[in-house]
Design a protein around this nucleic acid. Structure first.
Length: 825
RNA sequence: GCCGGGAUGGCGGAAUGGUAGACGCGGCGGACUUAAAAUCCGCUGGCCUCACGGCUGUGUGGGUUCGAGUCCCUCUCCCGGCACCA
């Protein structure tokens, strides 16, 4: 059983030091960022938090290292903007209103108030004059403005789309309000409903979103996720004739990536919602089909998943004709065909598609092999064959490889006008409508005479009315507010009704990087001259959970704005770094139910912000996350104590007479090696190894202090540079020590130390001597030793000789500065 | 199922194809102390050995190489994402 660890006490008053310097920095505007500063700009953004009420250790983990990196850039001589704001619209505020009767505005703003205080305790370089809160009309006004621009440009359109619906609460549910197919509030089974909603045409940008060439350094993982999310597949759209053709439509269009298997088609499956279904359903099948469609509509996604692999469907009575061979095949509907992908209709090729195979077996449909598996004996397949092979049962394409067949068939189909090569995408247009109160009102008006009319730009913002009924009614809460809903048409001035849905909060985050630049500017979302100075963002950091939604939407937004002519850059965030997740002491995800949640305020109030910052950065690589540890925290406090003692030593106590030139050289070497390592590591977010290097320097300096041999100038220089390196990591205590060592305020206005490779170079190295790749001896030799000399020393080693004795050396490998490997037989 | 990432001491982790385990935690021993804490010093992957030293060791099995934690192939497990995408 683990007992609560003994707590290390700091030998300095960290809390007082935090307060002292935070107040002073504030007072002096040390972190105020001047747009006209002549230094090169560096715009480093961290994902803004949702104002949930409390800053937890996860926020610290995201923000403290990010701040360290931004500070490091500042010490490299950049004019650094590292702003902060609040993602203030969204569902939790509305839930609080429903469950506790607090107005979302009140709830949100009081949370922000508290989080501001907590965020200040980080000691980050946030310029609070630039803070943004996107539930403010001054902010969301520009959401509406962008919406209107997109609408003008044809990028915003209205269409029917299904929403998740709770029949008992009579309300629309967000996906996160659905638990195992049931309403999280009342537990009843959810259904779907079609509503007219607003979309952005992100699908028009798929090719440009797949082009990552404008990005400088994004994790491959994120690029991969975005690529998969967009889901581009090349294939062929091929039409089948409908028989009998006594209806308006003459054909069923299908999409396939395997046109080489067209001769293996033995049925057609339409999505249950496919528009041709009612016309193609014969009278005798009417009842079955209707029953199936109703069942499909009610089946939640979770339920569909629970019947894993199962394929259901129903024959609708009609047949389609394969134009390549004139064959007549039955038409089914089945819910494994999605309304939202391709043409919502598939050609069933059971021999070469796993789903079609299962379907065919279930309904007794024929399976015809048209791509011969290797060593196929012509017999029946036990599962779909998805591999390569030679075409068979395929008329004039017989004997081609299926890859050749793909091309040949596609060309012939195009020649005959039966279809065309095309590309399908998984991604859908961005649905921005939310049937919610706490969001940006969509600036649209519905007029009986004029139809859909945009609110004129000069009438923005369309204000979110403060009084609304948040209780679930089945419509957006705004619909119940007559004063809001009833308006006049901007065009004909007759009575009209406002759009009552609000916008997705990803709208806010799509362009917030612009608003930090001129948060009070009222002529446009961003003051153009300031935007020109700062945009795009050089470095963005945040959690990987936003890999596809936020980061893709924002990229789309920026590209669309470029097309509109509003900006002249193409990507919002040039570099991206994703931090990992901080875990509880038990190595599990932090959660209230597990009781492993760490309250940062408590630790900060005891050991100060710097100890927490240092520890979070020391746990491990930032992108991997890692477990919180109280004992680990103790270790960090212990190191800071040793740092404090070391810096507090009086260099005039040094006995200069005992100074040894060799010691000075050694310390300078260690110092310059540390600067080089620290610089390179901080640059690449490798905080853990940067801190380890600083610990080694501490150990080295403590040793020479104890052993003697150092001169006071070297000591002073080492301490000074050590503090500068530690400054971005532990800003408060270094500022205090900077003052105590007689330097002028502020350490944070100094440049990061530079190193000299010559001084950092080792004079002596450990030459490893291997025999047949195994280490047999280690020799201290001059770093610039030549191969011949190294080999001679190696051969002279008695340890080595005992392994080479009686054998002949037929090869020797020399790696300069590292090793000699003798290969013997 | 598909895509991506990972697996190194008791723990977190470090290691441009070249000394595996830096740094820290924990543990053990010692100094200081009436004592404990704190602090300081030393040791700390496993096995064998009084010792010198040797053998072995980075999830599994193979391969490439003078040399593999690192590169290639196989498998197992873990984490993240997507999920009937035709």
């Amino acid at each position: 059983m683990t007992t609560s660890p003994r707590q290390v006490e700091l030998r300095y008053d960290a809390v007082a030091i935090d307060r002292k310097w935070q107040a002073l920095w504030d007072q002096d505007g040390l972190h105020r960022v001047d747009n006209d500063d002549p230094r090169p700009k560096w715009y480093e953004m961290t994902m803004y938090p949702y104002p949930s009420g409390d800053l937890h250790i996860g926020h610290w983990y995201a923000m403290a290292p990010a701040d360290c990196h931004a500070r490091f850039r500042r010490m490299q001589g950049y004019n650094v903007l590292h702003p902060i704001g609040f993602d203030a619209f969204g569902l939790p505020a509305e839930n609080a209103a429903i469950s506790r009767g607090i107005h979302p505005y009140t709830w949100t703003m009081s949370n922000i108030e508290n989080m501001r205080r907590q965020l200040r305790s980080l000691g980050a370089i946030y310029d609070w004059d630039r803070e943004i809160v996107c539930c403010a009309p001054e902010y969301y006004r520009w959401n509406q403005w962008f919406f209107l621009k997109f609408y003008e440009r044809g990028l915003a359109y209205r269409n029917k789309a299904p929403v998740v619906w709770c029949p008992s609460c009579q309300t629309v549910l967000a996906n996160e309000q659905v638990l195992n197919g049931n309403c999280e509030r009342c537990g009843s089974e959810i259904t779907r409903r079609d509503l007219e909603q607003w979309f952005f045409r992100i699908t028009e940008y798929t090719d440009r979103l797949l082009d990552f060439s404008g990005l400088q350094d994004w994790p491959d993982k994120i690029l991969n996720m975005q690529t998969n999310w967009i889901g581009r597949s090349e294939g062929v759209e091929i039409s089948f004739d409908i028989a009998p053709s006594n209806i308006d439509e003459k054909e069923i269009r299908t999409f396939t990536t395997r046109i080489d298997t067209i001769f293996g088609v033995t049925f057609i499956v339409l999505a249950p919602e496919h528009p041709l279904v009612s016309q193609l359903t014969t009278d005798d099948k009417q009842e079955d089909v209707e029953a199936y469609i109703n069942r499909a509509r009610q089946t939640s996604e979770i339920d569909r998943m629970s019947t894993e692999g199962e394929k259901t469907g129903v024959f609708i009575g009609s047949y389609a004709i394969n134009r390549l061979n004139g064959e007549r095949v039955p038409v089914y509907i089945g819910d494994y065909v999605l309304m939202t992908y391709g043409t919502s209709a598939v050609m069933g090729v059971p021999a070469h598609d796993a789903r079609d195979f299962v379907f065919a077996k279930k309904y007794g449909l024929p399976v015809r092999t048209v791509v011969a598996p290797i060593e196929w004996n012509g017999g029946e397949l036990s599962e779909a064959y998805l591999g390569e092979g030679f075409m068979t049962n395929s008329a004039r394409y017989e004997g081609m490889t299926n890859e050749e067949g793909k091309v040949a068939i596609a060309l012939d189909i195009e020649k005959n006008g039966w279809g065309k090569r095309t590309v399908s995408f998984r991604i859908r247009d961005w649905l921005i409508s939310r049937q919610r109160y706490w969001g940006t009102p969509i600036p649209m008006v519905y007029c009986q005479a004029c139809g859909i009319v945009p609110v004129p730009e000069e009438d923005l913002p369309v204000l979110l009315p403060p009084d609304a009924d948040f209780k679930p009614t089945g419509e957006s809460p705004l619909a119940a507010n007559a004063e809001f809903v009833n308006t006049t048409c901007p065009r004909c001035h007759d009575p009209a009704k406002r759009e009552t849905d609000t916008m997705d909060t990803f709208m806010d985050s799509s362009w917030y990087m612009m608003r930090y630049l001129s948060p009070d500017y009222d002529q446009a979302p961003v003051d153009p001259s300031v935007g020109k100075r700062w945009l795009p963002v050089d470095q963005y950091t945040g959690g990987a959970e936003h890999a596809v939604m936020h980061l893709l939407y924002s990229r789309f937004f920026i590209k669309a704005l470029k097309d509109i002519g509003f900006i002249d850059f193409d990507e919002p965030f040039l570099r991206l770094f994703n931090q990992g997740v901080i875990l509880g002491q038990d190595h599990e995800k932090m959660s209230k139910s597990r009781g492993n949640v760490v309250n940062p305020d408590e630790v900060v109030n005891h050991l100060g912000a710097d100890a927490v910052r240092c520890f979070l950065m020391f746990i491990g690589p930032w992108d991997q996350g890692g477990p919180w540890s109280e004992v680990g925290m103790n270790g960090m406090a212990r190191w800071l104590n040793r740092v404090w003692d070391m810096v507090a030593r009086d260099p005039s106590e040094i006995n200069e007479a005992r100074a040894v030139p060799e010691t000075k050289r050694e310390i300078m070497r260690l110092l310059h090696q540390t600067i080089r390592k620290c610089h390179n590591d901080l640059d690449r977010f490798k905080f853990n190894t940067a801190i380890a290097a600083l610990m080694e320097l501490t150990n080295g300096l403590n040793r020479v202090w104890a052993d003697g041999g150092i001169d006071s100038d070297t000591w002073r220089e080492s301490i000074e540079k050590f503090l500068l390196m530690l400054a971005p990591i532990a800003p408060h205590v270094t500022e205090e020590m900077w003052e105590l060592t007689g330097h002028t305020y502020s350490i944070h206005q100094q440049l990061f130390p530079t190193w000299d490779d010559g001084l950092a170079a080792d004079e002596m190295i450990t030459l490893v001597v291997q025999v047949n790749g195994k280490v047999r001896d280690k020799l201290e030799v001059p770093a610039d030793i030549e191969e011949g000399a190294a080999r001679e020393l190696a051969l002279a080693s008695p340890k080595v000789q005992s392994f080479t004795e009686g054998k002949s050396i037929f090869k020797s490998v020399y790696v300069p500065g590292r090793l000699v490997n003798l290969v013997v037989r």
